[in-house]
């Protein structure tokens, strides 16, 4: 599947260094499938969850104004920590089709790309403006054009960035890598044959 645009309403999730333990608590890794993970996003910090004694401010994921959002807006180093793919899987299954933020952890970025969930970056001030805009007007539709490298929301446009390889993979539909890696398996064997440890030295 080719992914060239992402369009929809957005959910702003403020904070730097949001780790994957927060996005998807470890107890939900206790399963042999990814089914149902969308129900547990940020569970420990959301209203009505086990974190009853947490600050009472409503969590963005519980705010009905953002219901149905297909884009997530985040700040710096989003998705750091554990390599659990359960975090992007939960987001994808909850209907998110893109994440826009100041920066991402590498493993989270790769885990998202490989399931067709683009993570694009924008400048600090642009993210601030986007978040403010969406907070004021949650039904604003955001449109990200991966090829043009732009993000548009009703009259406001900013540049977005994405490594060239990720953009190419998304727009050509090559983000699901296994097929690509198996494509010329003879070359894999050739590399294995030149590695002294493969044959036990």
């Amino acid at each position: 599947m080719r992914i060239t645009h992402i369009e929809g309403t957005a959910l702003p999730m403020r904070g730097d260094d949001i780790d994957t333990d927060r996005i998807m608590p470890a107890r939900y890794l206790r399963a042999v499938t990814f089914d149902g993970l969308e129900r547990h996003l940020f569970e420990d910090e959301r209203t009505g969850s086990a974190a009853g004694d947490k600050a009472s401010a409503q969590h963005a994921f519980d705010n009905p104004r953002y219901a149905g959002a297909s884009m997530l807006i985040v700040n710096r180093n989003f998705g750091c920590g554990s390599s659990r793919e359960h975090a992007p899987q939960g987001l994808y299954r909850a209907g998110f089709r893109g994440v826009i933020g100041e920066s991402f952890s590498e493993i989270f970025f790769g885990n998202s790309l490989i399931i067709g969930l683009p993570c694009v970056t924008a400048a600090h001030d642009d993210i601030r403006r986007l978040m403010e805009r969406v907070e004021k007007q949650p039904d604003a539709r955001i449109r990200i054009d991966l090829q043009a490298g732009t993000c548009e929301v009703e009259g406001f446009t900013c540049a977005i960035a994405l490594p060239a390889h990720a953009r190419d993979a998304l727009v050509t539909g090559a983000w699901d890598t296994t097929g690509l890696l198996l494509d010329r398996y003879a070359e894999v064997d050739r590399v294995a044959a030149r590695l002294p440890y493969v044959a036990g030295f």
Partner: peptide
């Protein structure tokens, strides 16, 4: 490299990773 589950699938199937 620490990887996610889809990359585990890649390595199982092809003994390779696609990396930057």
């Amino acid at each position: 490299f620490g990887v996610g589950t889809s990359q585990v699938r890649d390595v199982l199937a092809s003994q390779c990773l696609a990396l930057e």
